[in-house]
Amino acid sequence: MTLATKHKLKGYFVSFLRTVMLIGICYVIILPLIHRLSTALMPIEDLYDQSVRWIPRSPTLENFRLVWEHMGYVDAFGNSFKLATISSVLQVGACTMVGYGLARFKFPGSKIIFAMAILTLMVPPQLIMVPMYLNFRFFDVFGLLGDKALNLIGTYWPFALMSLTGTGFRNGLYIFIMRQFFRGLPRELEEAAYIDGAGLLTTFFRVMLPGSIPGLVVTFLFSFVWQWNDYLYVTNFMAGKNFLPQALEGAATKVQLAIDEASALASTSGFLDDHFYSLINNAGMILVILPLLLLYVFLQRYFVESIERTGIIG
């Protein structure tokens, strides 16, 4: 056997192993999603039918239609999209700047500020939720406004303020990621920029930012996805408004009520049918997840492109 064929065989073996492993892993990941999709497409009879497991006998879009209507999907989508966009753009901006400041500048207190960012992560958000609510309910910026305290609950302000200052949901993580990224970039470009007379901000925006695109994309994606799915903050600061999480949570009950009313079956009203809830919830979950999937598939391109970019920068 020549060396070349040996090499080739080894290559085949490696890619075979890799394929087997990846198929196994993907199976585990995708199983719940396929199950969810197949459940969402079933009419209720199929769920009762023991012989139907994966493929609906008579697939229907009825569940989707019901949940779309009763979630007020268009409205909830608009609200969630607006909130997630505002928050994630501000969060990425703020956390990138803080991360850069921590990675590249040595000044008294820089270590303390980094420890502070980690601290914001370690505290379970549930712990400070009630005081936070009270602070935004009677927002007075350290008593500067006196007794004219503003009520920011129900507006986008709590989210905007927290995002702008890098203290929103899991923002400590984004600061950490961006700091690691900037630490990983070579210093030479920056030094060159300073020598050429660029100021701090010019260097940051024109030299460092283009080099950190993979980090920016990752951070943006996290931030958008978590804001989109967030249940805790949105139910506390936006109670009673129609955002996707609340809409999804209430959808099944609403659908059930509507059906009960329509069929005038007084005897079954208030009766919670697990099977039926399952159908509606699964259809609703798919509607909530779908925009995120599309966003991810779209941003995926930037991940791939960034490989070539880093070649130039490094």
């Binding site: 500048f105 005081p131 602070n135 303020l161 702008l164």
Partner: peptide
Amino acid sequence: GGILFTLPFVIGFVLFFLRPLAQA
């Protein structure tokens, strides 16, 4: 540079984290 880039976070930390945490 350090102050310029990290100041917003320090303000947010005090207002939207430290204060609620102290209250908690």
